[in-house]
Amino acid sequence: MPIIDVRNLGKTYRTIEKEGGVKGAVKALFRPQYREKVAVHDLNFQIDAGEIVGYIGVNGAGKSTTIKMLTGILYPTTGSISVLGHDPQRERVANARNIGVVFGQRSQLWWDLALIESLNLVANIYEVEPSRYKQLLSHFAEVLELDEILKTPIRSMSLGQKMRAELAATFIHEPKVVYLDEPTIGLDVMVKQRIREFIKDYNQTHNTTVMLTTHDLGDIEQLCSRVIIIDAGSKVYDGPLNAIKQQFGKFRTITFETNQPIVSVNLPPACEQLNLSEFSLEVRFDRSQISASQVANAVMQQLDVADFTLNEPDLESIIKHLYQNPTAYNEVGARG
């Protein structure tokens, strides 16, 4: 049985359309023109225990709206959600006991309280058993390096310290399902790495189900085996991360550096010239049709090559390609 079961989920916002200027504002006050905006449309997916799913899409695609419906913050317009058998809206309290939520952009802790006080309060709200709390606190203090900030109020913490504090507060009641909405936004590489390791480790030791939205594909590559891509409120891809990579990974590029200025070059079939400057040439080729050595040979016969590098496609360029070419989703065989 899936842990998270989303069926035909939809959310439509109704906003008031305003014309510009004072006249428009007054008109909107007395004769409001409503405009319906579909944020999420007919969404279906199931997530099993222990999965870490990357939920990605461009800004405004409907990621946060989905997470807010899953956590019980927003009421869906259509469809149903079940998280560990609970309806997040109708059984808000029962659902809240099972879940942990991090919103990367805002804090769930008390601005003026020292971290340890905030954590005590959270533990009280979730009724964490005192001896268990002690155990977890010392564990988190170690892996998230909280010792030096336990007595610091949230307001005087750096962004990285704040996020470590948030994670401790989110996991202190040992949630079975965790939603992370951009947990690494604005953080430096070191903190990002520590946070990823923490999530991965927690997922492995507790079999926690994790749903993660992010714009940092490093998060996805290191944490997620499955990816759901949402575009304009609809699901456009749901499948293993590898499938995207394999499908789009059939293209590779080779960059050649030459000793002499390049005048012209004839490329073998299944190759495409990407960048050409005086002393360098970048070639993209389909590796199912031609091998890297064949391409290199063909080029080296024509040019005086000093050096060349073979580039594996990275996830970032693949996703960028997908975002820019929505039809490309069909190529990877969207599931669902």
Partner: peptide
């Protein structure tokens, strides 16, 4: 307005009490 209300809704107590 600043989005702080969300946290009341994901905790296992009555949001008004919180």
């Amino acid at each position: 307005r600043p989005g702080q209300f969300d946290r009341f809704l994901v905790r296992p107590i009555n949001p008004l009490f919180h």
